[in-house]
């Protein structure tokens, strides 16, 4: 693994995280290269969010090594993590919007608080506006999170994640609790973010359809919406990782996933009815 970390954006090598005496991540290893997308599937409590928070340095690993942007960050200090996080964008499961701040201030927050990203006020206002336009919420600048619907809050979360133009984007259950139409809109925005900004993307979800959409669709800049990707698979590479009780039980492509013999993995692919 050591030889390939130079090219990888994010890599876990035998990472273990324990809560009390229980291993919530058990010797997890995977690798993600620049421009790739990773779909992380698993049932509730399988360790998906813990994995994402470990990648952000919000939860410390008890064992193994984490590599970010080609560097070993397992022992990074909190200050070093702040610099690393400036290169990452994240959408939390609950949105993580600050309810005491307006939408404009929420989106501007990383630009104001991350030392390496500070920019002049006009530049900041322009980037905030651009980010909100990207998620089609340019008219909500003065509003507060409590005034928006769940789907809109999720879109503001995406705007905040991309405002810094990060190299790595992490989405924690972006479609959880949303109706199918809003969920499709959110996925279309994630695809747009991936294709327009060429960001490496990690998406944590329990819905196979999210991964499917990420693999089978691409954003068409001329049309301004997502279209089915070419069948020859020339789009960005998407691979799937399935977690079960903190362990990786599957790591492969969509085609491999759809033919997986493991009952637990197959359950994600199986369609109701």
């Amino acid at each position: 693994m050591a030889g390939t970390q130079d090219r990888s954006i994010l890599a876990f090598d035998e990472v273990t995280v324990r809560f009390d005496d229980r291993a919530v991540l058990d010797r997890v290893s995977f690798e993600l290269h620049r421009g790739e997308s990773l779909v992380l599937l698993g049932e509730a409590g399988s360790g998906k969010t813990v994995l994402l928070k470990s990648a952000l340095g919000l939860i410390k690993a008890d064992g193994g090594r984490i590599y970010l942007f080609g560097e070993d960050v397992t022992k990074a200090t909190e200050q070093q993590w702040y610099d690393l996080r400036a290169r990452m964008g994240v959408l939390f499961q609950e949105g993580g919007l600050f309810d005491s701040l307006s939408i404009e201030d929420n989106v501007a927050y990383p630009l104001l608080n991350q030392e390496t990203l500070r920019c002049p006020e006009e530049e900041m206002a322009r980037r905030v506006e651009q980010s909100l336009e990207f998620v089609e919420l340019g008219h909500t600048l003065e509003k507060f999170p409590s005034e928006l619907s769940g789907g809109m809050r999720r879109r503001v979360g995406i705007a905040r994640a991309i405002v810094t133009e990060p190299e790595l984007l992490l989405y924690d259950s972006p479609t959880a609790g949303l109706d199918p139409i809003t969920a499709a809109t959110i996925m279309a925005l994630i695809i747009k973010g991936r294709d327009v900004r060429r960001a490496t993307t990690v998406i944590v979800t329990h819905r196979y359809q999210d991964g499917e959409m990420l693999t089978r669709y691409r954003h068409d800049a001329s049309l301004g919406h997502v279209v089915p990707a070419a069948a020859n698979g020339s789009g960005p590479r998407t691979h799937y990782v399935v977690l079960r009780e903190g362990r990786i039980v599957f790591d492969g492509s969509q085609a491999e996933m759809e033919t997986a013999a493991d009952e637990y993995v197959a359950n994600f692919v199986r369609r109701p009815g």
Binding site: F92, Y109, L117
Partner: peptide
């Protein structure tokens, strides 16, 4: 998750 977001955003 606002406290996690705070840490994640610097």
């Amino acid at each position: 998750e606002q406290i996690d977001a705070m840490r994640a955003l610097g």
